[in-house]
Write a protein that binds this DNA or RNA. Structure first.
Lengths: 223, 223
DNA sequence: TCCCAATAATTGTGATCACAGTTTTCCGAG
DNA sequence: CTCGGAAAACTGTGATCACAATTATTGGGA
């Protein structure tokens, strides 16, 4: 296919490829431990290997993909209890911090936005729609975090979510989405509405802590 | 130049390019805010644009290089007090944690290694050799952190150092290396030798805290 | 001296090919 | 049926070219 992209203001192909692989990783469409290749990904996405190469470099740098140091082949990082523990600790530091900063800068618009996302999340949960639940959960957290105005920390959080993505799918695959009903989102929203910075921090910390604990149990059972 | 790389066990060209640019960034040979280009970097390093492209993708993902979202041009991220504050907070969480974990797994070999690096560091300081000091300082911290056996956290720390690199050069450029004489390395070594995990955490936290405060002052003065 | 248009140089992006190393496939000997 | 080795397919890497877009330069009219 020799079609050329005519304009530059449109998002570059390698960015679309990045997003496609990222989603496939998070939603578990590419299983952890599985090997992938530039050309196979390119064929699957109907693009040339070139933009895939760019996207993959980025994902490797973000540790969402691993590269075998000896034969240089690509694979999805395997899940390990050790990795999960480190990712949990890191999330448990960064994300409550982002939540606290966001709470300090929140307004009624943010509160309404979070409420809307959370009700969408509840509906997805009620319907048992795992994909929609995961999307809504991601949307909730990052709508909040973005308000913190902390670019560096936000990027760290994004990288951690990307690495944790495959773990989440394992949990859902094992126990189903219904186990995750109990979240602390309402608690967080209430704290944000009240301008309670430290309450928002605690609510998000509790939300994460409980979620990660479920993952820990699921992973331990899976290994 | 059409010379082909004959072997695959040797490090790939794009890795060498990555390391070269990384070093140039950390040591401040490429000034913050300055624009760079694939072809100029390639010419400077006497390689084709291709491996540079790979290395740059990686550096952008690690936020050691920035990419203008409108004209897609590359530049070195500018220093800002806000960015420094976030990087400081992140380092102040990750690195003491790594130090603590390393202290729990330390042996006499590590202690000797750290002592050797630290005496090299002191000599560099005495000679006023900034490059050597920075290399030794990096070596000290990461010789310690690697012992933690925490790959995820170690990678986070590495990324943070890369982002903080340009800031360090500003400090040295302004005040000279002699200001940084007072570090907490001896304190940290002693804690590690004694198996005092929390002491190691505190020593590294103090070391970082003092260093970052100096950077903060320097950056504030520079802006 | 100043300013604006036209040209030239430079930029990131994508496609395609070449190459060497590794992995898989496959077929025939035992 | 099993095993081993040769051939084929596939892998990441690097070079080179094309293209559209942006930036720099230059020249001439006011």
């Amino acid at each position: 296919m020799k079609t050329r992209r005519p304009l530059a203001d449109s998002t570059a192909v390698h960015d679309q490829v990045y997003e496609a692989i990222r989603q496939a990783l998070i939603t578990g469409r590419i299983a952890p431990g599985k090997g992938v290749s530039l050309r196979s990904l390119a064929a699957e996405l109907s693009v040339s290997p070139m933009p895939v190469r760019d996207a993959v470099r980025r994902l490797v740098a973000e540790r969402a993909l691993a590269i075998n140091p000896v034969n240089k082949r690509l694979s999805v990082p395997s899940l390990s209890a050790d990795r999960l523990e480190q990712l949990s600790m890191a999330r448990l530091w960064v994300e409550p911090e982002l939540a606290a900063r966001a709470a300090a800068r929140a307004d009624t618009g943010l509160v309404r936005q979070l409420q809307a996302i959370d009700s969408d999340l509840d509906e997805a949960l009620r319907l048992g729609d795992v994909d929609r639940y995961m999307a809504a959960n991601h949307a909730f957290h990052f709508a909040l975090y973005e308000r913190a105005g902390a670019e560096v920390l936000l990027a760290m959080a994004g990288g951690l979510w990307l690495q944790i993505g495959p773990f989440m799918r394992v949990v859902f695959g094992r126990v189903g989405a219904d186990v995750l009903v109990a979240d602390r989102h309402a608690e967080a929203i209430e704290a944000i509405r009240a301008g309670d910075v430290d309450g928002a921090r605690r609510a998000i910390a509790a939300d994460l802590s409980e979620g990660m604990e479920k993952m820990r149990v699921a992973v331990e059972a899976a290994l």
